[in-house]
Simulated assay, not measured.
Amino acid sequence: MRYQFILDERLGIRLPALGLEWEEYSSAERADILLEWEEIRATIPDQIIRVETVIIDKTKQMSEEENFARSCELNSEIHELASVINDLNIWFRVQQDHETKMHQ
Rank of each mutant, 00 (worst) to 15 (best):
R2L: 12
Y3D: 05
I6V: 15
D8A: 02
D8E: 08
I13E: 02
I13P: 00
I13G: 00
L15T: 01
L15W: 01
L15H: 03
L20S: 05
W22A: 09
E23V: 05
S27L: 11
A28T: 15
A28P: 08
E29T: 05
R30N: 03
I33K: 07
L34D: 06
L35Q: 13
L35P: 00
A42S: 15
I44S: 02
I44M: 10
V51L: 01
E52I: 04
E52D: 09
E52Y: 08
T53P: 01
I55C: 07
I55L: 10
K58Y: 10
T59V: 06
T59M: 09
Q61M: 09
S63V: 02
N67E: 11
N67R: 03
N67Q: 04
A69P: 01
C72W: 07
L74T: 05
S76G: 06
E77A: 06
I78Y: 09
E80C: 00
L81K: 04
A82C: 05
A82W: 00
V84E: 00
N86W: 05
D87I: 02
D87Q: 14
F92I: 00
Q95Y: 12
Q96F: 12
H98G: 10
E99F: 11
T100A: 12
T100I: 13
M102K: 14
Q104W: 14
